[in-house]
Design a protein around this nucleic acid. Structure first.
Lengths: 190, 190
DNA sequence: GTCTATATACTGATAGAC
DNA sequence: GTCTATCAGTATATAGAC
């Protein structure tokens, strides 16, 4: 019923918008560019997203967040030991980051920074994304026997370390920060 | 000679631009708003910055970076032990962040994310800013007897942790990430 | 649901008088 | 160095035919 063989305009718009917001940020990405690259007509955009750019961005961030969450889950499931698992996950992210040669942007950070003060709904969906990432790390730690409260704290810390390393790696065009942060994971979890 | 009692248009423009770029990001900040809030005429902007917005942003990021560097230096000088010093610095930043109630933005991150792929000179000045922050942490560690190579690595890691914690704290409107990262500094430096 | 044409406002940038 | 007027382009958003 809801699974269509052919991709509809709404999905095409969200997919294209997700890519462009991630690559260029919120304000640098215009609706004209999104409709043009998605192939969907502009009238269609306001039919599917009556609240315009803000609503489209909210759904785009949700899509991006789900995609990243899946990557995290898959990565963490590869290894039982949590420290090794998280370290490997970050190193895999660094490899992918290097392969793409910085042509993909950072998943959510730019939209979060640009909109946190001007759109409460957009801020909330970015906040949810980060809360979700943290929860995945925390879950992995709890399953490995970490005490609940410490696992929660370390989820926040690990998420911060990863986001910061992404920011610096992206700005400098060098994956070193990601690799160095990965190496510190076993240290902070000891 | 170069120290004028009265603030000239160029300085007013850079100061205002620094504040607005930090608060709103690069693309959301228009030249009309900068000239209006600075009190400087628009014609004056292109007289002082022939390369327009990009050049103004470069000098604004430099000003912001210098200001942050001074804050870091002052903070690190308060305490001799590097772990304690860095931890206290981050906690002070968190306090200031909370006082401002998220009304100041994050110093450089938004501009860095928005421009790294579209302006090489702007990317470079953001990169320099981060390199400078890292060097200050590294210097503190070397002075305390850390081995040079490890001190460099930890400068990068600490800078990443702080930037990431700022990003998450800003997005969520909660200083917890900054405080938790501060608490981990002695752990990673042990 | 799709598509085009258009409205209004604002963007970065420039010209030229003063 | 200052200031105003204005350019061409693009932004988000809407109206209305199909």
């Amino acid at each position: 019923m809801m699974n269509q063989v052919k991709e509809n305009s709404k999905d095409k718009l969200i997919k294209t918008a997700s890519r462009l917001f991630q690559l260029q940020g919120y304000h640098a990405t215009g609706l004209n560019q999104i409709t043009k690259e998605s192939g969907a007509p502009k009238g269609s955009l306001y039919y599917h997203f009556p609240n315009g750019k803000e609503q489209l961005a909210i759904e785009s961030v949700r899509l991006t967040a789900n995609f990243v969450s899946e990557q995290i889950v898959e990565g963490l499931n590869k290894t039982q030991d949590p420290a090794k698992a998280i370290q490997n996950l970050i190193e895999d992210m660094a490899k992918q980051f290097q392969r793409e040669a910085r042509k993909g942007g950072i998943p959510i950070a730019s939209v979060a920074l640009e909109t946190a003060l001007i759109s409460e709904p957009l801020r909330e969906v970015c906040q949810s994304a980060y809360a979700n990432f943290q929860a995945l790390f925390t879950q992995k730690l709890v399953q490995a026997g970490f005490e609940e409260s410490r696992a929660k704290d370390m989820g926040v810390v690990i998420n911060s370390m990863i986001e910061g390393a992404f920011l610096i790696s992206f700005t400098t065009g060098n994956v070193e920060p990601l690799l160095l942060v990965a190496k510190q994971i076993p240290v902070v979890l000891k």
